[in-house]
């Protein structure tokens, strides 16, 4: 029986989909059987981020409306045989989703996987509700800015009211150079304010956009500090006590000026 975890944020554009794909991939690299589910009905993106858009045949609404079996809708990732995508429908709207049906589909799927990650749409309306309904745990994604943390606080309240325990925090697009200059919220500020357990800090990294352009998952194709951050999140989810990466900007030595600024 797998763990069902919703990846959510309230605010859009903070990197939920990227986090879902990369954390899912990192769990799969640890040998876990993982499925990521795109719950953004009508605005699907997870297939594109994973570079699987050409392999999508059926989607979650096809299962819900009886046009295919669950296994027919699952798309296997290109590099890993234990990593799958359940795509969203692009033709439906979030109002077409029956929350009970989604709940049933996910409870069948979780029998056969170690992890079911639900990529929630932005907002707190119907799409969010159907992504949260089957979840037992949650990963809250924030970027270090006032509006993102504010929206996360609202979402945490809603998740707690629903009785979801095990809510962990991921800080995405963290720029330690800015933090050091005191121009960005420090990770400890965010943890203090939200009162959640921090499970990962993903540094701002240009390679993320690059791999998305190519339709590759960063964590599977590149080896850099962001990949390491995703791996650490996966290992912490597995209960390992992994120390946090030192994201402090590199000290520039005498030849430091020749280094590319990242």
């Amino acid at each position: 029986m797998g763990r069902v975890i919703v990846v959510t944020s309230g605010k859009g554009g903070v990197g939920k989909t990227t986090i879902t794909a990369n954390v899912g991939a990192s769990l799969a690299k640890l040998g876990k059987k993982v499925v990521v589910v795109d719950m953004d009905i009508g605005l699907r993106n997870l297939d594109v981020v994973m570079g699987l858009e050409n392999r999508v045949v059926y989607n979650i609404m096809d299962i819900a409306e009886g046009r295919c079996k669950i296994n027919q809708a699952l798309v296997r990732e290109k590099h890993l045989s234990n990593f799958f995508l359940l795509p969203a429908s692009q033709m439906h709207t979030k109002e077409d989703v029956n929350i009970e049906t989604v709940y049933e589909i996910i409870s069948i799927i979780k029998e056969n996987f170690d992890y079911v990650l639900l990529d929630s749409p932005a907002g707190i309306e119907n799409g969010f509700k159907s992504a949260v309904a089957p979840a037992e745990e949650a990963l809250i994604v924030v970027t270090p800015d006032v509006s993102s943390v504010r929206d996360a606080d609202r979402v945490i309240g809603l998740l707690e009211n629903k009785g979801i325990e095990g809510i962990s925090l991921i800080i995405n697009r963290y720029d330690s150079t800015l933090v050091k200059k005191r121009k960005m919220l420090d990770k400890n500020d965010i943890v203090d304010v939200l009162g959640l357990d921090l499970i990962g800090v993903v540094p701002e990294n240009k390679a993320v956009i690059d791999s998305e352009n190519r339709g590759e998952i960063l964590a599977l194709t590149t080896n850099n500090v962001a990949t390491k951050a995703f791996e650490n999140i996966a290992r912490r989810m597995e209960g390992e006590d992994v120390p946090f990466l030192n994201l402090a900007p590199e000290k520039r030595g005498i030849f430091g000026i020749f280094k590319r600024s990242e």
Partner: peptide, 12 residues
């Protein structure tokens, strides 16, 4: 120049 403190106070 310390916009971090401003952000923190506003957030609170």
């Amino acid at each position: 120049n310390d916009t971090e403190s401003i952000a923190k106070e506003r957030l609170k």
